[in-house]
Design a binder for these strands. Sequence first.
DNA 1: CTTTACCTTCCCCTTGGGGGAGGCCCTATC
DNA 2: GATAGGGCCTCCCCCAAGGGGAAGGTAAAG
Lengths: 129, 129
Amino acid sequence: MQIGEAARRAGLTVKTVRYYANIGMVIPRQDETSGYRIYGEDDVAKLQFVGKARRFDFSVEECRELLGLYEDRNRPSREVKALTMKKVEEIDARLVELQSLKDELSGLAASCDGDHRPDCPILNALSGG
Amino acid sequence: MQIGEAARRAGLTVKTVRYYANIGMVIPRQDETSGYRIYGEDDVAKLQFVGKARRFDFSVEECRELLGLYEDRNRPSREVKALTMKKVEEIDARLVELQSLKDELSGLAASCDGDHRPDCPILNALSGG
DNA sequence: CTTTACCTTCCCCTTGGGGGAGGCCCTATC
DNA sequence: GATAGGGCCTCCCCCAAGGGGAAGGTAAAG
């Protein structure tokens, strides 16, 4: 199939699929006469795999790694689990950070009257050292 | 003072301060003969303000807006509060999204033995439609 | 034969700067 | 006077992960 259908079936944009071909992540067959990319069922499966991993917040490089493990019939599941745990930890750290940001900001917002007057504790907090 | 000291005092890198000058966020005076940027105390205050707002996850454009409000002695605090609340909502949405990702991923990791065998529920989940 | 849809490559754009090259400016030291 | 050093300048390319669109080739349908 052509790139359009492969992209549709993988739930990705054509641009994205072409990008994955360019960076050597999912490399399709090439039609000699037309120059068109030709995708097979296995390629679509890989594209779906990568798409899903991306939605799980894995970076493109991590997806490449996961894809390598996915294609290796003899890989130890240990490696996949380690990568996943690392990602969970990253997400956790970001969660803590964002939560703290949210707390500070909503505390500031609560202390601000939000009326027509110029006095604003938010700006005061931002300008204070 | 020169850019190096201004950056130090604002807790930013020289690159960042120069960038803020280039995009018209904090514009210093210019020494005619040397071409050096000359920063005053008020510029340092603005740089600190922007740096702090950035740490609060405001985008550069939002910082520009906040800085405008900061410099306007007659601004209504309503505007600042609205911007802050919007940012809090964004952070909240991202928190929900990340939490859901974390739950899914840690559920997967928990279901994976993580041993030497190739069977891996994580990869199975990623490859399943 | 022509339209239309699909495909190709190529290049610039995004965020928020980082890294480094090549070249001034200024001061200190020899 | 020369030279070394540090700080500064502009200019250009780089990152992630593609998006947008131009210019042009190809295939299928009317």
